[in-house]
Design a protein around this nucleic acid. Sequence first.
DNA 1: ATAGAGCTTCCAGTCGCTGGAAGGTCAAGG
DNA 2: CCTTGACCTTCCAGCGACTGGAAGCTCTAT
Lengths: 135, 135
Amino acid sequence: MNIGTLAKRSGVPAKTIRYYESVDLIESPARSENGYRVYDEEAVRTLSFIRKSRELGFPLEEVRSLLGLWQNKQRSSGEVRALAQSRIQDIDSRINELQRLRDELGHLVHACHGDHRPECPILEALEPHTERTSK
Amino acid sequence: MNIGTLAKRSGVPAKTIRYYESVDLIESPARSENGYRVYDEEAVRTLSFIRKSRELGFPLEEVRSLLGLWQNKQRSSGEVRALAQSRIQDIDSRINELQRLRDELGHLVHACHGDHRPECPILEALEPHTERTSK
DNA sequence: ATAGAGCTTCCAGTCGCTGGAAGGTCAAGG
DNA sequence: CCTTGACCTTCCAGCGACTGGAAGCTCTAT
């Protein structure tokens, strides 16, 4: 199987597969006489695993750990669970932060006429408090 | 005022101020005889405005637009409102996506014992469906 | 005189790809 | 046999928005 076929079957673009190889996330495959990369079924499984992990938002370094745990039959499920839980905490704090921004922007948009006139509470909110500072 | 003072007063790191200058977000300031950048009160206001905009999550290119509108007394508040509203849409879709991931991970963590044993529904979910494909 | 803080420029790294250039290879069709 | 087009190869650059560090100059205080 060449890289294009692997790309289609795993759902990971060929460019990205080469990139994963360059950062040692996956092993370098064998090469055929013409220099083309040659993959086996195992590669389809590995790349699919990586794709799903990425879709769940795991950063590449955590995908690396997950891959190790996946391939290690002696692993403890506790380690995997811990990784997933810290991901959840990341996600929660990002959601909270986004929610805060959303609310703030929502209030401002609500307060703004949004017409041809220049008065705009949004800009006023961005404007620094103009205190009289000694020059 | 030198760059360090401006940094303290605006809350924007000196490095970042130089960066903003390099991408033409702010004007190049005058230089004193020794080559140091020299800023005025206006710069404090501008940098503070930029900082608050960034804190509200506007990407730099939108900050550029906001700055233009802020400085243009003929602006219409509608333009500003439109920018803020498209930001809200961005944020909403990011929140939704994160929420989806969070739920999915939450289910998986819930299903996983998380002990010393290797069985782990989280890894199983990442694993591709193993269909018998013709070799 | 010297130490330390503050300033200058320029280059590299972050994260995870993605695009493009320049070129080799292969199968099908005229 | 030749060409076309789809593959494949490598390497380099760019995205956003900084941030860190090196090397070197300037200022202030002791």
